[in-house]
Design a binder for these strands. Structure first.
Lengths: 120, 120
DNA sequence: TGAAAGTATAGACTATGCTCTACTGTTGTC
DNA sequence: GACAACAGTAGAGCATAGTCTATACTTTCA
């Protein structure tokens, strides 16, 4: 299928698909060299890839991380324990971020106190 | 004082100070017009401003937000309730972000489950 | 046949917060 | 007077994730 159909199938905009292609997350291929045009052709797998990318993004993976992972992940060149490890690492980084944000909350609480005490 | 001294006093790099100046967070002034050079001069208040900026950043305020707030805040042209309101709004946005991250954690947990069940 | 719609490429632009470079001018020290 | 150290401006570059524009070519359809 061509990019327009891919966009409709996946719900990802054409612009974004092109951006992903440039980033190495997906790959269309040219039809036979005899063809006059240089339109790219995408297969069903690419639709699934785009859905996987969407999921990975919602989990907090960056495009860079997805780019490094997607081929091994998609082609099952990564074992289950390795997959779990990647997910656990992301989990840890999210938890670290939550910790930072909670620290900020504390700082704000302290700041509020000082604002109030200035008042007196 | 000149920018080098300001940098040492505040612990903020010269580059960053210039960036803050361009962003409107601080303001040096030229000496008397008779002076030949166009070096900028900073007062004690600017040191304090830089420390305030550091605090505001650690609380999660962006440079843009700080730019919009710092003058009124620093010159006490903002009332205590207004200050508290600004802090509370930031608190809410941080809590919202924490919520998002917790959502991600749930998604990852689900993903881990599916990885494990694929295995079987 | 001619216009509309689709496709490709390259590159600019957005927001965020710096960071650094290039280049020029000034000041202080030996 | 020479040279280092410091000051200034303008602008590029990094990372992130797109988004959009300009330009050009191809395909489709009436």
């Amino acid at each position: 299928m061509q990019i327009g159909a891919l966009s409709k199938r996946s719900g990802v905009s054409i612009h974004t698909i092109r951006f992903y292609e440039r980033s190495g997350l997906i790959k269309g291929r040219r039809k036979a060299p005899g063809e006059r045009n240089n339109y790219l052709d995408y297969d069903e797998e690419t639709v699934e890839r785009l859905l996987l990318i969407r999921d990975a993004k919602s989990i907090g993976f960056t495009i860079g991380e997805i780019g490094r992972l997607i081929d091994v992940w998609f082609n099952d060149q990564i074992t289950t324990p390795e997959k779990l490890k990647v997910l656990d690492e992301k989990l840890l980084s999210i938890e670290a971020r939550i910790k930072e944000l909670k620290e900020m909350k504390k700082l704000i609480a302290g700041f509020k106190q000082s604002v109030l005490s200035e008042e007196c």
